[in-house]
Simulated scan of single mutants.
Amino acid sequence: MFNPRVFGLFTNPFYISRRALFKKIQFLSQYIYGDVLDIGCGKKPYISLFSHARTYVGLELNTNESKIYSKADFFYDGSVFPFPDNSFDCIVCNQVFEHVFNPSIFILEIRRVLKPHGQILITVPFVWDEHSQPYDFARYTSFGLSSILKENNFKIRFQFKTCPDISAFFQLLNSYIMKITENYLSFFRKFIILFIVSVSNIIGYILGFLLPDNPDFYLDQVILATNQKLT
């Protein structure tokens, strides 16, 4: 699901978004090193990209659902991370920031456990439907997210936008189709994926290469930033 290959064009309704996000995280993973904390790790879908790290620790909210379905190593109360100051060389935070009600407090806690000059790799959706309801609180423009990071003494090294082209439209179409058919019988959903969603995937993927980009309309942001604290 999170690293779809070519066959995923025919089976994965989120192929366009997931493939683009994976490629950007893969590129930036070379800058992640040492002891790594994955905040909101879920099932750690990108852990294979950080096999060069010394340790890879997953952190999740302390909920029954997280304890059952996630692969977290530690759980927290949504406020204070259960680690001493300067515990990690790098932090990974994928598709979590939009679920944080108090982003300034969240960023301060990240800075506390991140070593001086440590790296943070963060991804957030921009154009996407509400999800994980009712805990979906915000969408951030590229300017909004970079401003929050800079205000908290992070220096941005890379900032990417995924699918800044017409493929984003076809991904949203697929998301819409899956949403309105979520109560259909499994057989009908598989039929829809194979004969409708897959066609949308293919058309979107091809047109994304052929037509001009629109950098103001995209699916996700991917940022790598350096913690500039001195101690």
Rank of each mutant, 00 (worst) to 15 (best):
H131M: 07
D136E: 13
V127N: 10
D136K: 05
V96H: 06
L59M: 07
L59E: 01
F137K: 07
F106G: 03
H99E: 15
I148D: 03
V92T: 05
Q95N: 14
P134A: 14
S146L: 10
I110L: 15
Y140C: 10
R54M: 08
H52A: 13
H52S: 13
C90H: 03
S51E: 14
F126H: 07
Y69L: 12
V100Y: 08
L59A: 07
E98M: 07
I32S: 06
T141I: 09
C90Q: 05
G40F: 11
I110M: 15
G34S: 10
P82V: 10
V80N: 11
V80W: 01
G78W: 05
F74T: 00
K67L: 10
D89S: 07
S147V: 00
P125S: 14
C41K: 02
E130S: 02
L59Q: 04
S87L: 11
F27P: 00
P116T: 08
L37E: 00
N102I: 10
V127S: 12
E65W: 10
A72N: 00
N62Q: 06
S79Q: 09
S79D: 04
V92I: 15
Y140S: 09
I120D: 02
Y46D: 08
S70T: 15
S104T: 11
H99D: 13
V36T: 02
S29L: 09
I32Y: 02
F101Q: 13
V127I: 13
A53E: 03
G58R: 05
P45L: 04
F27Y: 13
C41W: 03
Q133F: 11
D89L: 03
L121Q: 13
S146W: 04
K44E: 08
Q95D: 15
N94I: 15
H131T: 02
P125Y: 10
P45E: 14
I120F: 03
S48T: 12
F97K: 01
S66Y: 08
Y46T: 01
Q95A: 12
Y140N: 08
H99I: 09
Q133W: 09
F88G: 02
F101H: 11
Y31K: 14
F88Y: 10
K71R: 14
E98D: 07
Q119I: 14
G118F: 15
H117M: 14
K43Y: 02
I110R: 02
I32K: 02
F27Q: 12
L28V: 05
L37T: 00
G34Q: 08
N102Y: 14
Y56Q: 04
T123V: 04
E98Y: 09
N86I: 06
R111S: 15
V100A: 09
D73C: 06
L28I: 03
P125N: 10
S70N: 13
F27M: 06
V92N: 00
